[in-house]
Design a binder for these strands. Structure first.
Lengths: 211, 211, 211, 211
DNA sequence: GATGAATGAGCGTTCATTCAT
DNA sequence: CATGAATGAACGCTCATTCAT
């Protein structure tokens, strides 16, 4: 692999025809990552499945890596949106149990939506270079969660940033592990229940004494 | 991909000269994985850094993959030993807080020992083929932990297997995340304390009512 | 050996530029087979002599084996055409002596055209995998000859298939041997004459009694 | 493959222990050639199957090629002996039909004895270098047959050397082809009968007028 | 813009041969 | 003499990237 190149798309095409091509390329990449794993998504195959040529692919993405990053972004935007949506507008005042349940359920759903793609993306991003990218994504989620935690009057957290970090990574790590290594458990309500209980107790113990 | 090749070393060298060579090859692989990431550990470079030839490498390992697996085994044996050692002989009777603290501290220490190698290994093992290997390793840890949980008279767990799964993955996921994405936190005692609190509360809430 | 790979060219290039490249690759392979024997025709050398790159080679041929098969096809198409042409339209009615003479002369000419290439091809095709290919080629010739034998009203063969097999292999074997091991004889008319006599007597003895 | 090395065995061991080792090596080579084709007979595998080490192998044979040549010699000595034996002491006076039948039958038997080995040897010898070897072998047979032809008072051959060449190559080529490409025919008496008829007519037509 | 033929460094792997033990 | 670990050139093949058309 040659010297490091930027990960951003070469340009953000506004015209509809280009938009369609770019989408097709990203979708083709996602499919191949899913179907054939990280090593199966070669630029030639991607272009073929997308119905374009390698040349066009390189018109929109400076490197293969940038393309992978675009796929990851699309995937993670969806996940973030799912989580944000799951919290709802009353996340600050709803019962803690309900909020945690919604969060965990959404995280499991997000992971379960497309496990092979998720796994391939994680692997691919771990390859040299995209570490920053993954960090940013997590940071986004952590900010979201930190805001939630701060918004709840009943929680008295010493270190909300740490709590957000742990909460995001905890739920992500557990659901990721379950999706990859123990898919059988995902279907059983006991799994969700236990994760919810875990989080709830931890947060609940830090409740602000209600005056 | 051709037929599956075995992951076991080709031969267990008994002569000291060979032993040294094999060790050098494994160590060189670990270094390159660490320094240059998964894609940087090519067989040619490994042999060169080990001070041997590719031919010798293939005398001891049937494929590159088997070599990676050997590195992973060495690394994970060390981690498992660390954890097992941390628990000590009185893990069944010592105060829960102390046991959990020892566990979390050991997990953090294990990850912190060589973060880049750890990360590279995880990536490399995720590539096609070695998934089983990773699963087995986790299974080993889960068995260890499940035995511990079962041995404690004060815990009344509904589903010890699930608890072991969650506990192992929880601690692993959190320390892994911290090591890779937030190394600054590792040094602060607040991190360890919070993880310990998290686990302790979860388990503690399931205490058997003392008669 | 991995799964069997196809022997057919990867694509039939329509553009003239590609056509030229493919021809150059086939010709370079034939030359190297001729000049350096089966082991000398490595993909790198082939590409170099063809004035292209290995990458281009593999754009048109899925494996080295397929490339060898293409060379063999080209060579054998020429041989078959030579033989078919030698027989002429009146092969069914012309004097037996003339037909046999034409056949043997053509066979000798075909072999004599490029003995080293012929020898290298035979060797290369004998290597695992292309046996079927060689068999098919011979079958093609046998069909051609069987039709000829059947078309002649003056021949009363008990087993035309066997006769065709023997005739093809006989002439092929003898000329092949002469080309490789006794090239001096090829130039002398006595050789051709003797082979013709051999075939003629054999077939002639099975003449249908003319009413 | 490095520069050309001599094909003769390094030394002809007289001591029984060496003799046994050499035989084991040759036999192992023949087996591997038979079982796994030309590419399967690597020096390491040969030594292993022979129960020795590569080092010992190289004590007796300067190169792998020389070893192959030794196997070929052993095989062809057996074939020659079979043919010579088949002719018998009265080959000069026995009926021509009987002599030709004996010859063809023996040739078929010789080929049919071990087709895979025969095929592998032919391929292997065709690889650069051993052409002379094959020529010598054939020359030996031709001399044998030429003597036979000359010894028969009833034959009046214009060119006995040419006839011997054709006869040897003819029978060899046909049986070789049958063994490899049409084994089914070998079992049928029609095959032998037709080849005998072919040879007999050809030679018979050159009978010296008995006066 | 789009195309896809061309590139070639680099990969994992093999195996005949040597030589220290 | 025997051993087998060590060697490394060479092989077939892939694929991200470029650029003439």
């Amino acid at each position: 692999m040659p010297r490091r190149r930027p990960l951003n798309p070469r340009r953000t095409p506004k015209q509809s025809r280009s938009r369609v091509t770019v989408d097709a390329i990203i979708e083709a990449t996602a499919q191949l990552l899913r179907d054939r794993g990280p090593d199966g998504a070669t630029t030639a195959r991607i272009a073929q499945r997308a119905g374009t040529s390698v040349g066009s692919l390189y018109q929109y993405f400076p490197t293969r890596e940038a393309l992978i990053a675009a796929v990851a972004t699309r995937h993670l935007d969806a996940v973030t949106a799912t989580l944000a949506g799951a919290l709802g507008p009353d996340a600050a005042t709803a019962p803690l149990h309900d909020v945690v349940t919604a969060l965990v359920t959404a995280a499991i759903a997000a992971h379960a939506a497309d496990p092979p793609l998720h796994a391939a993306l994680v692997t691919e991003l771990a390859r040299a270079g995209a570490t920053d990218f993954a960090k940013e994504t997590h940071a986004r989620l952590e900010t979201l969660v930190a805001a939630l935690l701060a918004s709840r009057a009943d929680l008295q957290l010493e270190n909300p940033a740490l709590a957000a970090f742990l909460l995001v990574r905890l739920v992500d790590g557990l659901t990721h592990a379950a999706v990859l290594d123990a898919p059988a458990w995902l279907a059983r309500p006991a799994f969700t229940a236990e994760v919810v209980r875990l989080v709830e107790r931890w947060l609940g113990a830090q409740r602000r004494p209600v005056g």
